[in-house]
Amino acid sequence: MKHAFLLSLAFGLLLSISAPAQKLRKTAAGSGLMEKGEKVGVWEYYATTRDGSQVIAQKYDHSAGRLVFFRPFDDVLYPVRTASGEWSRARVTHPIFFIGGDTELAGYMSRLSYPAAAAAKNVQGRVIITITVDTLGQASNQQVLLGIGAGCDEEALRVARGIPDQWIPARVGSRAVVSRIDVPFTFRLAGR
């Protein structure tokens, strides 16, 4: 009996030593479990509403690689590529999402370097980059949709091309579709 207890205790210790350590991580953008430096399980990602309250914008299962929950979005038509390769506007079950939501995406978008030519000419404003996201969540065909010149368009395009492929493709029903997302990059000189 004593031998069985010791064997059971030793086995339990062995399991706890070999089991991967999971740690709860919480940031302003989201919370969930980390294991060996990687996100695992279901993570909650937050957004801030117009009245300043924090809400869950999406839940993403990093272990299964799928979206579990998303906050309702505006019921508008989104650009979707048809089977024939043409673009049309359609209602979607959900649009393109960036894993981690807008807060996570903003971290990549903030990597802008103000172009010297734009600073010298006091050029400020917003550059809109359109990005095509395929059915596997891969981004391509980044293009300037609305530019302000003086090197800002090229800088926004450079940063947009550096955003990692952490996109969740748009869906119509249960089917992933190729769609586009417009991403704004703001250029504002400090103190102006």
Rank of each mutant, 00 (worst) to 15 (best):
S113L: 14
D102T: 11
T27E: 10
G52C: 01
G147C: 08
K23I: 08
P115R: 05
T48S: 03
R192E: 08
A21C: 00
A106M: 01
V80H: 05
Q166A: 09
R25W: 03
A190Q: 09
A106G: 08
A150Y: 11
L7G: 03
A4F: 13
Q22F: 10
S140Q: 13
A176Y: 06
Q54W: 00
H62K: 10
S16R: 13
D102N: 03
G30Q: 02
R71Q: 15
T93D: 07
T135H: 15
A116R: 14
G12V: 02
K26T: 12
S174H: 04
I168Q: 04
S174K: 14
R66S: 05
G149P: 15
A120F: 15
L67P: 07
A47S: 11
F70E: 13
L157E: 01
Y78S: 01
E35G: 07
R161V: 01
C152A: 14
A29W: 03
R111S: 11
L77K: 14
A117Y: 05
R161F: 00
S53Y: 06
G147S: 07
A176F: 06
A190C: 03
G191E: 13
R171V: 10
K2I: 13
L14I: 06
L24E: 12
V177I: 02
Y46C: 06
A4L: 12
T186V: 14
Q143I: 12
A139Y: 00
G191K: 12
